[in-house]
Simulated scan of single mutants.
Amino acid sequence: MSGVVRRAPELPAWPQYSDEERSGLIRALEQGQWWRMGGSEVDSFEREFADYHGADYALAVTNGTHALELALQVLGVGPGTEVIVPAFTFISSSQAAQRLGAVAVPVDVDLDTYCIDPAAAAAAVTPRTKAIMPVHMAGQVSDMDALAKLSADTGVPLIQDAAHAHGAQWQGRKVGELGSVAAFSFQNGKLMTAGEGGAVTFPDSELHEIAFLRHSCGRPRTDRRYFHQTSGSNFRLNEFSASVLRAQLGRLAGQIDTREQRWPVLADALAAIPGVVPQTRDERCDRNPHYMAMFRLPGFSEQRRNAFVDALVERGLPAFAAFRAIYRSNGFWETGAPAESIDDIARRCPNTEALSADGVWLHHRTLLGTEEQMHEVAAVVADTLAAQ
């Protein structure tokens, strides 16, 4: 019927919870100790999270930004050092380094996967480079083969920003099995959540022990006389959050299975719409948890893309504009910025410039819908695009 606006289907809500979370919260309450040094929920969650990701150790922290900051610190990042980060990412990736007094060096990303370009990262390495931070964008694992070689060739360690990549795999290996430190987020929109929270996984006990000290004000577990062995801060996760995260972890695998089944359906339907280009999958990423359903509208300006996203939201889709290039936010320039202008960085980051202007993403709860709903979502995108 003429004039009827197609509405989005009723998609699953997020966060999801059930009696498992309720039971966990009561369990944490009734144990009588509500912080990690006296309770058991954080310790249990750390073991379970490490096991799920194939890591030797995990440390739960207050949020994903602190996870990155702590991971960088234990790798020696601080004043006088540089950290290579993708220009297309949430700004915590750079600010975690900048808060430590380091310089964040943005490099371009691949226009198909939206992950860091290993060649661009290689070109940015200097004697001051202390870490290279691939971001597993929307659950698509970065090219860890090329990055591992770069790390081996230069001696610069990797730190995986896995805020989007809970449960991801690269050629059969889980994130914790890739030989480098990885940082995760449990913010409200993430693939598993307690509202806030984060975790760092480690490949060895030495780094884990250093991180434990620094996340607890430099104080050893058994200290009773205030002998703080290092500087640090209070990044400790509380017992209530850990109890919720244990329940969230228990349903993660099933949710990933569903999203893995739905994304090909939605991606094909989106690709059939003229002018829509979905994020490409590197098949070496053989388990993608799909934190976002991402696509581009090549040729759109930022203003036109923003209007399109607003129209999708009005029709009921959980749609968002893609990340702004980190160097195009004022916060990036407050401290720890490279000695370049915005235009200088933009010239060497053309793919980031494009994604920042024409990228769109749908919340991962979209991919928890039915197969029929994937076609309905694509139809809403098509109708909205036709009305622009």
Rank of each mutant, 00 (worst) to 15 (best):
V135D: 03
A120W: 15
G195T: 04
H66T: 09
A242F: 10
D143M: 00
L150V: 05
G275S: 10
K130W: 00
A194Q: 02
L237M: 15
A163L: 07
Q95N: 10
H164G: 13
G54P: 09
I116M: 15
L317M: 06
A102M: 03
Q33D: 13
T230G: 01
A346Q: 11
E353T: 13
A378T: 01
E41F: 12
Y327M: 01
Y226I: 13
A148Y: 01
F235W: 15
G32A: 08
A146Y: 08
D383Y: 11
V181E: 06
Q98Y: 06
S233V: 09
Q279D: 05
I26S: 11
P134N: 07
G39N: 07
S341G: 14
T113L: 01
N188E: 15
V277P: 06
G189Q: 12
P9W: 00
S329E: 15
P220Q: 03
V42G: 04
R304T: 14
V42R: 05
G197T: 08
D257L: 11
L75R: 05
T201L: 15
V74L: 10
T113P: 08
V377R: 01
D286M: 05
S356N: 08
S94G: 09
F186M: 12
W14E: 10
A269K: 00
R221S: 11
I210F: 05
S301G: 14
C349V: 02
D51K: 12
G359L: 05
E209H: 13
L178R: 04
D143R: 07
R251W: 01
S2L: 11
V109S: 12
E314L: 13
D344M: 08
E206P: 07
S92L: 06
A67L: 00
L178F: 06
G101I: 03
A60W: 05
A124C: 05
H164A: 15
G218I: 03
S23Y: 10
R348G: 00
Q98C: 06
V77Q: 08
I256M: 02
V74E: 11
A271T: 02
P86D: 03
R365W: 00
E314T: 06
R281I: 12
A293H: 03
A104W: 04
F332E: 05
V4G: 02
V277S: 13
L368K: 06
D282R: 04
R281P: 01
Q31E: 15
V244C: 03
H375T: 01
H363V: 09
R224I: 07
E46I: 04
P203V: 06
P318W: 05
F90A: 10
A152Y: 04
E209I: 05
A162F: 01
E20D: 15
E209G: 00
C115A: 10
L178A: 04
G32N: 06
G155R: 09
A162C: 03
A8N: 02
H364K: 00
H363K: 09
M137V: 14
I91E: 13
D383I: 12
R236F: 04
T154K: 15
E41D: 13
F295K: 07
P318R: 09
R304Q: 14
D112A: 15
S185K: 02
V107N: 11
A131T: 09
G197V: 08
